[in-house]
């Protein structure tokens, strides 16, 4: 790598003014040249990343700043990662983690030391409450609107258990259709923005599974009011014109 050479991430090039290979700009009053553009996923944080060697990076940084966050290392072929970790710890006295350990370490840091979990948690809670409220109101309105039909079915000998099954089936079918449409739209959005867009988009299957559980939970919770209404409904209501 040439002196003062850096590589930038394609997805984050806009944050640096869209430089091209060969472009020159300054980092902390030090001239630098773009020698490559890497196709790497966009980062969750807002600061752009540039890539260079550790030695060169020292030229860009103030000497009094403790700047080294981590060193990414790969074990030589045939050497167990645990051995490398133990060796780093013993030799340098610094912490060393596997990729998975470091991922959890980072996530735990953000969960414990930033407002992100509270903000996202509040948003999710609000979404859950509002979703349950809207869905519940819709199902309740449906039960009210169709009271005479439920009454007729009760009069004709449909058991409470069957009525509950009917309401839950309806609720879950509506919920699953909504989940399918929502997941589909999210997938289309994810595919359309692509890995090099401004938006950091990641949708692992665990997220879809959690969303499905949440949707089914909302369906169940929102059906309870209608179930109660229908079970308490006097079938004699059908004789009132």
């Amino acid at each position: 790598m040439k002196q003062n050479a850096i590589i930038i991430g394609k997805a984050e090039s806009e944050k640096l003014g869209n430089p091209k290979v060969g472009s020159i700009f300054e980092i902390n009053n030090t001239e630098t040249r773009v020698v490559g553009i890497a196709d790497v996923p966009r980062d969750f944080l807002s600061n752009p990343f540039v890539y260079t060697t550790y030695t060169r990076s020292l030229f860009y940084l103030p000497p009094d700043l403790k700047t080294l966050l981590y060193v990414l290392a790969a074990p030589k072929k045939g050497v167990p990662v645990e051995t490398v970790i133990a060796s780093i710890r013993k030799t340098t006295g610094l912490a060393a983690y596997t990729e998975n350990q470091y991922r959890w370490h980072t996530m735990t840091y953000y969960l414990e030391n930033t407002g992100i979990p509270i903000n996202i948690g509040l948003s999710l809670t609000l979404v859950f409450i509002i979703g349950t409220g809207i869905a519940g109101q819709t199902f309740y309105a449906f039960a009210l609107q169709n009271e005479r039909f439920f009454g007729a079915l009760k009069a004709m000998g449909v058991s409470g258990k069957t009525l509950i099954q009917m309401i839950l089936l309806q609720s879950f079918v509506v919920g699953l259709i909504g989940f399918g449409v929502g997941s589909g739209l999210a997938a289309i959005f994810g595919l359309s923005v692509g890995p090099s867009s401004k938006v950091a988009f990641d949708a692992p299957w665990q997220l879809a599974a959690l969303s499905l559980i949440a949707v089914l939970g909302i369906c169940l919770a929102s059906s309870l009011a209608s179930i109660r209404r229908v079970l308490r409904l006097e079938p004699a209501v059908v004789f009132h014109g």
Binding site: R148, F149, G151, A152, A155, M156, V238, F239, G241
Partner: peptide, 8 residues
């Protein structure tokens, strides 16, 4: 068997 005013 039931027959209602509003048919239902």
């Amino acid at each position: 068997g039931f027959i209602f005013q509003q048919f239902n």
